[in-house]
Design a protein around this nucleic acid. Structure first.
Lengths: 207, 207
DNA sequence: GCGCAATGTGAAGAACGGTTCACATTACAG
DNA sequence: CTGTAATGTGAACCGTTCTTCACATTGCGC
């Protein structure tokens, strides 16, 4: 990642580009793709419409750029958590914690991310959500491996197929993030990852 | 629910209305609100555009009607399952089963329902998703009561706040339905509700 | 059959929004 | 300071789509 070999001008352009993306993120995540016009983005970012088109081929390209950068950022953090050191339980705890942290740090884009991630995304003709879905699928496979390893070692009961356990944990953590998004003070995303993990770890029945 | 005091004409209009809604559902759930035009709906339903406007104030009203009828239908079935007879476990089993059944029977609209239900809904200016959310909130409260009752009676361990258990079960069942939607043969929605419920019932740790 | 009311029709109107491009402004080398 | 290239601008263009409404068709009581 060489970043220092950029000229002043290049750095400025990068900065301008980021300004545009930031403005667009705010608008898109508030109103959705179709309810945001290029002129609104222009006004908010304080550039002219034509300038936007110097940076992005068209509106769809702008939107795509946002989502790709977003998903890469998220992907990096989550992958790191999943590959990190520690036993199965620690890794799962890490996953829940990191996922929470990265979402907290990017509140304004979380709505956008969920819109592209869950439910059907009708914003883009085709292709974008596939890329994102592939990243998520990789996470799920990683998670499944952790569960499988725990089961093999006798640490975990095999209460469901490892892949389904992975999907379940992903779903549960996203759901808690949703609760938090809707009412942050009422439903804080738990500091302690075990609040979420215990739903899997402990059983409602027996003890 | 008196339905027989309708004239032939009134029944016909109701039927026509349903034809329009059916065509619109197919298009919306395939392409999303903004990617479907009134003329497409007109063509598919085999009415003229002007006729659509005799039945619905505008496009948004048409969309709103779909979602309201949809959510009422779902609400009825789910509420019945939650209020039905049986102990706590049977009620939960019923909930999972009924939710699965009603979604299976309405495949074409499930995508639409998820789009309005999960993630952010940007299709409608405001208000629609609030109505639907209130219905879902009622279900969650019901579910929470069941969990609470089970805990009070000592049938369930208190592994989490009852409301969070409710949210978790809702999330898990929706997630399994999502899997099924994406790849029906690969991930059949389980006949046996305990496949899903065991994720809550049994614990990964201990036995 | 007749005539009126109810219903159905789709071309035209109006608004909106993505994209373009000729021009203005700025940056910078010589 | 000058001239040229790079960059920035936004009015105008154009396609799309929602909505209206004057007219056509149908249904029905007499």
């Amino acid at each position: 990642m060489q970043e220092e070999i950029l000229s002043r001008r290049e750095r400025e352009k990068l900065w301008q580009r980021q300004e545009m993306l930031t403005a667009a993120i705010a608008l898109f995540s508030e109103n959705g793709y179709h309810n945001v016009s290029m002129s609104e983005i222009a006004k908010k970012s304080e550039f002219a419409i034509g300038t936007l088109y110097k940076f992005f081929k068209n509106k769809e390209d702008l939107y795509r750029s946002i989502n790709i950068e977003l998903s890469e950022k998220f992907d990096e953090a989550i992958t790191e958590a999943l590959l990190g050191t520690g036993d199965e339980i620690e890794r799962l705890q890490n996953y829940v914690k990191v996922k929470g942290a990265i979402f907290m740090d990017n509140v304004s884009v979380v709505r956008l991310y969920f819109a592209e991630t869950r439910g059907a995304s009708f914003n883009i003709k085709a292709g974008l959500d596939i890329e994102i879905r592939q990243k998520i699928e990789r996470h799920l496979q990683h998670l499944a491996l952790i569960f499988e390893s725990g089961i093999k070692k006798g640490r975990f009961q095999r209460i469901a197929d490892p892949y389904y356990l992975a999907v379940s944990l992903d779903s549960l953590s996203s759901t808690f993030l949703h609760l938090w998004l809707d009412a942050p003070e009422q439903h804080p995303y738990p500091e302690d990852p075990d609040v979420i993990l215990n739903i899997l770890f402990r059983g409602l029945l027996d003890s």
